[in-house]
Design a protein around this nucleic acid. Structure first.
Length: 426
RNA sequence: GGAUGGUUGGCGGAGAUGGAUUAACGCACCUGUCUCGAAAACAGGAGCCCUCCAAGAGGGGGACGAAGGUUCGAAUCCUUCACCAUCCUCCA
């Protein structure tokens, strides 16, 4: 969430951000609620001060002058009741304000193009062109069965629609990608590998902002207050929740493989074929914590780390600088990485790299002590590095050959033990 | 699943019987003295959140896992919940 102080002192900046992000947020209501809350709070505090002063004498009076104490008690009872009423009111007003505050998005960085996605997203970097074929390239949902590496129908039999299953070399490819992604981040990009739990407490989901806003997107256990994570961002970011880090710990770079679970309730009927959009998928996520002065530099590093993987896989990709209206709610700058998939003939988002500045840190209460001993919020960033099913799509569709086989990228061959997927002879 | 104990500031850790606990004490931290400098010792000081303001190293309020309750007054008593630990049971 945003700092209430920023909202009070720079309402115009916040208003501009709401408009640019096309957020449904009522700034005036927040300011009004805040005003009312402060009034009630100061009133209650004045009474509390009065009561504290009187209570100082009470202990003594109880021993020395019982009747006087009893008299004071009656007066204090009345004061106390008034104070409590005011406090209740203040508490309610604060809750109202904070509820509204949750809908105020983060302020985009000045460099972010202002406008709609379609017209103002900017491709700022790319490598490779969409591939041209002398034959009609197949979509992954046709390639998978031909190579006998996927089990779409059987996955649906077991788990319903929206689930994938891999067999043989297809299954092995998942492990190969995960291992290679993580090894590269650890060896070359300075990341520490984390293996997180995929079931988390409600507090963790609130800490990173999935709840309460996206309740219907999350899988939840029936008998316990535990949720299946939609991304490793949740457990990893929450590792340092409510902690005060030392300046020397920054920057911290963690990466984690996890399975991710999403109900996709709002996307029902979208991308139903294949594995572009599924309820369970594998992803390696990068999460960084930095000094506030370094986060934009780190944002470039993080994005480069993901791009390096795409480059070495040999996939045609591009980096898209997302315009204000297309940005996430809580980030200040966002790059999406997209891979071209010739079979479905679309650019697929395989990574989204964001700087959240202190928006997330404030909510999750992640702070550090700077050189002067002052406690400040860190900046947090995260990005996929990378999301598997869409990378698998990219590999299958980009590296298919006329004979129906698919060439395995060189970097994965040490893990795979073979250099191509070959169609099964029926 | 059963039983017991626990949750206090950056860390450790006091705090039966509610009112001098103003959250002690130690470590770490900062400033002085000492020193060429440092360490040690000694003397001071400081933390976090909110708010008011004549804006000053100023005033007030709050925080002892969370939320309620009792009371003139709650870290301390009561209720509910969460989490942690240990033992038992079960289990890959």
């Amino acid at each position: 969430m945003l700092d209430m102080n920023t909202i009070r002192t720079q309402p115009d900046r916040v208003r501009a951000a709401i408009v640019a992000k096309k957020a449904k947020a009522d700034l005036d209501a927040v300011l009004a609620a805040d005003e009312k809350w402060r009034k009630a709070t100061t009133d209650a505090q004045k009474l509390q001060a009065e009561q504290n002063a009187a209570n100082k004498d009470m202990g003594r009076l109880m021993k020395e002058d019982k009747p006087a104490a009893e008299k004071l008690k009656i007066a204090m009872k009345e004061l106390s009741d008034r104070r409590k009423a005011l406090e209740d009111e203040a508490k309610k007003l604060e809750a109202d304000r904070d509820a509204l505050l949750m809908y105020i998005p983060n302020i985009p960085h000045p460099d972010v193009p202002v406008g709609d996605e379609e017209t103002h997203n900017k491709v700022v970097r790319s490598s490779g062109e969409p591939k041209k074929y002398p034959f009609k390239p197949l979509a992954h949902w046709d390639l998978g069965p031909k190579l006998n590496i996927t089990e779409f129908e059987r996955a649906a039999k077991i788990s319903g629609s929206g689930f994938v299953m891999f067999r043989g070399l297809g299954a092995k490819l998942q492990r190969a990608l995960v291992a290679w992604f993580i090894d590269t981040h650890v060896k070359e990009h300075g990341y520490t590998e984390i293996y997180p739990p995929v079931l988390v407490l409600r507090d963790a989901m609130v800490g990173t902002g999935q709840l309460p806003k996206f309740e219907e997107e999350m899988y939840k256990l029936r008998d316990e207050e535990l949720y299946l994570i939609p991304t490793a961002e949740v457990p990893v970011t929450n590792m340092y929740r409510d902690e005060i880090l030392t300046a020397e710990m920054l920057p911290m770079r963690h990466c984690a493989f996890s399975q991710c679970f999403r109900r996709e309730a709002g996307a029902a009927g979208k991308d139903t074929r294949g594995m572009i959009r599924v309820h369970q998928f594998d992803k390696v996520e990068m999460v960084n914590w930095t000094h506030p002065d370094k986060s934009y530099e780190e944002h470039e590093n993080l994005t480069r780390a993901a791009e390096t993987l795409l480059e070495r896989l040999g996939l045609p990709w591009r980096r898209v600088f997302i315009a204000t209206a297309g940005m996430g709610f809580s980030n200040s700058k966002q790059y999406d990485l997209e891979v071209h998939a010739p079979g479905v003939d679309r650019w697929l988002e395989v990574s989204s790299c964001s700087n959240f500045e202190d928006y997330q840190a404030r909510r999750a209460n992640i702070r550090f002590r700077d050189k002067d001993g002052k406690v400040r919020f860190v900046h947090t960033l995260n990005g996929s590095g990378l999301a598997l099913p869409r990378i698998v799509i990219g590999i299958l569709e980009n590296f298919q050959e006329a004979d129906g086989s698919v060439v395995i990228p060189e970097v994965l061959r040490p893990f795979m033990g073979v250099d191509r997927f070959v169609p099964e002879k029926k």
